[in-house]
Computed example of a mutant assay.
Amino acid sequence: MSALFNFQSLLLVLLLLICTSAYAHYVFPGIMDRNRDGVFGIFWKCARIGERLSPYVSICCVAMAISMMASS
């Protein structure tokens, strides 16, 4: 089953995208800041979400981990 058709998997993919983009922006800020527009602008926007809403993102990651443990 694709992640697009399973809501929990879609949320997991979005959380991983946000966390990975925030980490990549921390490690390579010049590359991320150059690509604010276009297709790669999605990663820049996800990095901003991860940086500004980090307490909420971390709570969502813990909640997803608990729900994944409970479902398996």
Rank of each mutant, 00 (worst) to 15 (best):
V27L: 11
M1P: 10
A3C: 12
A3P: 07
L53D: 05
S54A: 14
A22Y: 06
Y23T: 15
I49E: 03
E51I: 05
T20Q: 04
S72F: 13
I31N: 01
L11Q: 07
T20V: 13
Y56L: 00
K45D: 12
Y23C: 15
Y23L: 15
E51G: 04
S54L: 15
E51K: 07
M68C: 01
S21I: 02
K45P: 06
A65D: 10
S58I: 10
A65C: 14
Q8L: 03
W44F: 14
C61Q: 04
R48G: 02
R48Y: 06
C19G: 09
S67W: 08
G38R: 04
V13E: 07
V57G: 09
V57Y: 06
V62K: 06
G50Q: 03
A24Y: 03
Q8V: 07
R48T: 12
A47C: 05
R36T: 10
V57K: 02
S58H: 03
V62C: 12
M32F: 14
V62Y: 03
F7K: 07
C61W: 02
L53K: 10
M32T: 14
I31H: 08
V27W: 03
S71L: 08
L17V: 09
E51L: 07
G30T: 03
N35T: 09
S72L: 06
N6L: 08
A65H: 11
R52A: 00
Y23A: 15
F5M: 06
L53W: 07
L11G: 01
V27N: 06
F5W: 10
F5E: 08
G41V: 02
I49R: 05
L16V: 05
F40T: 11
L4P: 00
I49C: 09
A24C: 07
Q8R: 11
I66W: 12
G50E: 00
A3D: 08
M69I: 12
L15G: 04
I49V: 15
A70M: 05
V13W: 02
I59W: 13
P55D: 08
I59Q: 14
M64D: 06
C46V: 01
Q8S: 08
L16H: 07
S71A: 13
V27Y: 11
F28T: 11
V27D: 08
N6G: 04
I49T: 15
